[in-house]
Simulated scan of single mutants.
Amino acid sequence: MRKIILYIAVTLDGFIADENDGFSFLNEYDDLKSVQNSYQQLMTRVDTLIMGRVTYEVIKKNSVWPYEGYECFVLTKQSDRPSDHRVIFRDHLDVLVEDLKKREGKDIWLVGGGNLIESFLKQDLIDEYQIAIIPKLIGRGKRLFTLSDIKAKLKLTQIEKMDEIIMVTYSKK
């Protein structure tokens, strides 16, 4: 069965983006071979991506769409937007995930952001957490986990040192 994978970088103080939804704190790590290898391993493992509207808006500012050849869904309350060649807009998380898990295919990458991750957590839909811990403190921004009432038992399946970054992988227990 297909797995939903949260693959994400987080600062040591728990932020996935700065206050302006920016990721510039990650720039110095982009060229590390270990980071590139980790990302390539993920991309060979998945064929479908799910992201939130804010994440989509940030990514689409790139001059080149980075996920060509992957089926991409954007979860948004504005699901009446016409889909384009890049993405399909959807509004019902549970229906989308149920549909995707029934299909044949590779795993599914939960790209983010924070609100979408929170929705997946509420419904216990994340099968695997791959979290790259970035050795930076940025003080403010968008937190990875904001819900205080969500509880989950996870099983540590891997720890990998990637230069100055630590990648931890957990699965549902």
Rank of each mutant, 00 (worst) to 15 (best):
N37L: 09
F25M: 01
L121R: 14
V58M: 13
Q78R: 15
H92C: 15
I8E: 06
D13V: 07
N115I: 05
V111Y: 05
K101I: 09
I126F: 00
L32S: 01
Y56H: 10
S79P: 08
I5E: 01
L110K: 09
Q36K: 14
D91T: 10
K77L: 08
V111G: 01
I88H: 13
V46G: 02
Q36F: 05
P82W: 11
L49P: 04
S79M: 09
N62P: 05
Y67A: 05
V95T: 13
F23M: 10
I131V: 07
K3A: 06
I117V: 14
D21C: 04
T55N: 00
A9F: 15
A132E: 11
T76G: 02
V54D: 07
D30M: 14
G112K: 04
I5V: 14
R53Q: 10
I4M: 05
D30L: 12
G14K: 04
G52A: 00
I131E: 11
D18F: 10
V87C: 00
Y39F: 15
A9H: 13
T48W: 01
I59W: 08
E57W: 04
L110C: 12
F15N: 04
L32D: 03
M51T: 08
D31E: 06
A9P: 06
H85G: 09
V74W: 02
A132H: 12
V74A: 00
I5T: 07
C72W: 05
K61Y: 04
E98Y: 04
R2C: 02
M51H: 06
E98K: 09
R2I: 03
F89C: 02
Q130S: 14
N37D: 14
L26T: 05
T11N: 09
K3M: 08
G114W: 08
I131N: 11
D99Q: 14
K101A: 06
L26W: 09
I117S: 01
D91K: 12
L42T: 05
L12M: 08
D13A: 08
I126C: 03
R81I: 12
N27P: 06
K102E: 01
Q78L: 11
A132D: 10
I16H: 00
G112D: 02
D47N: 13
S34M: 08
L6N: 01
D107C: 12
Y29N: 02
D99R: 13
Y39A: 12
L116S: 00
Q41A: 11
E128Y: 00
F73W: 06
R81T: 12
V46A: 04
E68K: 11
L93H: 03
I4K: 03
G22H: 06
G69I: 00
Q78M: 12
D31P: 04
I5C: 09
L12Y: 04
I16V: 01
L49A: 10
L100G: 07
Q130N: 11
S38M: 03
S24V: 07
L42P: 02
V46Y: 08
Q41D: 12
V95W: 05
S24N: 13
D124L: 02
V87Q: 03
T55K: 07
V74Y: 00
R90F: 06
I88S: 14
L6K: 01
D124C: 01
D99P: 06
G105T: 10
K77N: 09
S34E: 14
R53G: 14
E104R: 08
F25P: 04
N62Q: 15
V35Y: 03
G112Y: 05
N27T: 15
